[in-house]
Design a protein around this nucleic acid. Structure first.
Length: 332
DNA sequence: AAAGACACCAACCGCCCAACC
DNA sequence: TGGTTGGGCGGTTGGTGTCTT
């Protein structure tokens, strides 16, 4: 930071749709070479670092965003127990999620949930009674805001409407969903090609092939940027019920959207074993996690096994006893 | 209806490390 | 070998929306 010239007037704060468009167009066209040169080449009044962050946390086409699935919550919980606050490493195991997103989710939701369960979010060990009392006092209001939901042990139950409070069902949340939809519209138009292509040509920038990126970009000139989540997209009046459910369904169907996740998920036995393996390798977190995920995955093939054998299952169920997805709300 | 409290999250900050010269 | 630069990361902040009183 602070390495740019003081004379330069660099913008800060929220990104405008125009800025997003410039950055997106530039990266999709030329890939990422040197972040420090990106703003200049893309015509942005931002520092390279800011561009990088914006791309990684928001514009990247392979971002999943939306609500976290049960599997993802379990993954985060398990990984955090082993890795601690190494959000980047945790994010690396959750494709489509950013470290920032996971960090925020942890701090705003999972942490409180753990405390409420009497578990120290730092150590993942039970809090003493005093600690529980103190923590609970500190987070009473927050706890009350966390929806009290029935445990969900199978996907069918997830489909059922969950109890929600005002906070879990508000226009802000929906607006975020809509923003996500808008962003997806942008991205989906790009996904006539390999969604991961960017990574490929980041490594080997070639604006021409193997894809004709220019044509793709030019063919996508009418995508809608929506960079400021809370200011979008009602005003456009484009949100139809089908839009809404389509998008939420895509997130809701964890069998689809979390294929990537289930790729990392496993049966309870495997998960248990993985955790044990990981804990034995505590001196080397990277190796630990790699060992966690070195097993072949074919999704959670037996959720009963998972629930029965995974020591974290009861918590996980409680943690993710809801699938806080607007699709369930939309059914109400 | 208004003001304060609270929650969420995008973005920033500052540090660290590796690569380069 | 030491200085500079760029990228990555975790912690923190500030803006905004919602809820409560």
């Amino acid at each position: 930071m602070g390495r740019h010239s003081v004379k330069e007037k660099l913008r800060k704060g929220l990104w405008s749709p125009e800025e997003d468009e410039k950055l997106y167009n530039y990266i999709t066209r030329f890939g990422v070479g040197c972040w420090s040169s990106v703003p200049k080449l893309a015509g942005l009044q931002r520092c390279g670092k800011s561009c990088r962050l914006r791309w990684i946390n928001y514009l990247r086409p392979d971002l999943k965003r939306g609500m976290f699935s049960q599997e993802e919550e379990e993954m985060i919980f398990t990984l955090h127990e082993v890795l601690g606050n190494r959000w980047a490493q945790i994010a690396a195991k959750l494709r489509g999620r950013t470290d920032n997103e996971i960090k925020n989710y942890w701090n705003s939701y999972l942490k409180k949930k753990l405390i409420k369960k009497g578990i120290d979010p730092n150590t993942h060990k039970p809090l003493s009674e005093n600690q529980v009392r103190n923590e609970t006092n500190c987070t009473d209001k927050a706890s009350m805001l966390i929806p009290q939901l029935p445990n969900v042990s199978n996907s069918a139950e997830i489909e059922q409407p969950f109890h929600f409070n005002k906070r879990s069902f508000n226009s802000e949340a929906i607006t975020r969903q809509l923003t996500e939809i808008s962003r997806n519209q942008l991205v989906s138009k790009q996904q006539v090609f390999d969604p991961l292509f960017l990574y490929e040509f980041q490594a080997n920038v070639n604006p021409i092939g193997p894809y004709d990126h220019q044509n793709q970009i030019e063919g996508n000139t009418n995508f809608g940027f929506c960079s400021m989540p809370r200011l979008t997209n009602f005003e456009h009046g484009h949100m139809t019920e089908s839009d809404f459910s389509d998008s939420s369904t895509s997130r809701m169907s964890t069998s689809n959207s979390s294929n990537m996740i289930s790729h990392h998920s496993s049966s309870g036995i495997q998960m248990n074993q993985m955790l044990e393996n990981a804990q034995e390798l505590i001196w080397d977190a990277d190796n630990k996690i790699d060992s966690l995920f070195q097993y072949p995955y074919d999704g959670i093939k037996n959720e009963e096994d998972f629930s029965t054998n995974n020591p974290l299952s009861s918590l996980s169920q409680d943690l993710s006893g809801e699938n806080r997805d607007v699709s369930t709300i939309s059914k109400m």
